[in-house]
Amino acid sequence: MTVTEERTGTAPTAREARVTDEHGRRVRIGELAWRYALLLLVLALTVGPFLWQLSTSLKGPTEDIFGSPPSFLPEHPTLHNYERVADTIPVWDYALNSLKVAGASVVTNCVGSALAGYALARLRYRGRRVATLVFILAMLVPVEGIIIAQFTTMRELGLNNTLIGVVLPGSIGAMNVLLMRNAFLNLPYEIEEAAYVDGANAWQRFLRIALPSVRGTVAVVAIFAFMGAWDDFLWPLIVLSDPSRFTLTIGLNYLHGTFANDERLVAAGTVIAVAPLIALFACLQRYFFRGVGEGAVKG
C-alpha cells in the first residue's frame, strides 16, 4: 500500500495558510467543512462503539448504565470490573493461552511460508509446479467447510482439546506461502546468482540474501498470523472443550453465555481482548494496510 505512505509525506505544514489536496491544489473551505463533518460522523460510528464499551467497563456497580439519555463518561471511573472478571473466569490464563497460540502461529507461519515460498520461487526440481498447485488449491478451500473433518483429524491425532490442536491447522497458511513466493519472485535474480558463483548453497542464499530482502512481507505474514490466531473463534470453539484451556475469544463467549446480564463484566472482558490488538495496530499500521492490498490480490 504505497498510497498511504506517499501521502503522509505531503501533509501541509502549519505555515501554509491554505489546505491543498493530493495534487497540490487548493481545497475550498466549504468543501473542507463538510468533509470534516462527514469524517467525524464516520469516526463516531466506527470508534464510538469501542469507547462506549470502555466507558461501560469503567462504570461502578452503583452507576446507572441504562440511563436515557445515556451518560457517556463514567462518573467515578473504577477498575473494579476488571478485578471481577478475573474472579469470574481465569481471564489472564486465557490471555496467556491466546498469546501462546498467536505467538506459535507467528513463528510457524513465518518460518514455514518463507521456506516453502523460497522453494516455489527460486529452487528448481521436479514437482515444483505440482507443489505450487497444492498451495493454490489449499487456499481456495473454505475453512468453514472442512472444520468437521479437521476436528475428527485432531481427535485421531489425540490433539483435540489442546493448544497445539488450536494452532496446527493454521500453522502454515497456504496464502502466506504464496505471498512469500511472490515476494521472492520479485527479487532480482542476479544477486543470488552472484552468491551462487561464490559457492553459496541454497540455505546460505536463502538465509543471507533472499530472506533479508523480503523482511516487509515477513512482517505482513507475522502480523496477519498473529491477528488471525488471536481473533479466531470458530475453530478454537470446536476443538477446545475444557474451560481451563480456553483462549480469550472462547472465554469471552463463555462469559457472555453465563453472565450475559452483567454488562460491566462482559465489557471489561472485551476490552482486555481487544486492547493488545489495537496497540499492535497503532504501532504497525503500515503493515496492516499493506497486507490488505497483497492479500486481496491473491485471495
Binding site: 510457524t108 518460518v111 514455514g112 511460508s113 521456506l115 516453502a116 523460497y118 522453494a119 516455489l120 529452487l123 507443489a131 497444492v134 498451495f135 488449491l137 489449499a138 478451500v141 472442512i146 473433518a149 479437521q150 483429524t153 496446527l168 491447522p169 500453522s171 502454515i172 497456504a174 506461502v177 541454497a202 536463502f206
Partner: peptide
C-alpha cells in the same frame, strides 16, 4: 524447504 508447508496444508486442509 517445501516439506513443512506441504505437510501442514496436506494434513490439515487437503486431507
Amino acid at each position: 524447504f517445501a516439506a513443512p508447508g506441504l505437510l501442514v496444508v496436506g494434513a490439515f486442509v487437503l486431507y
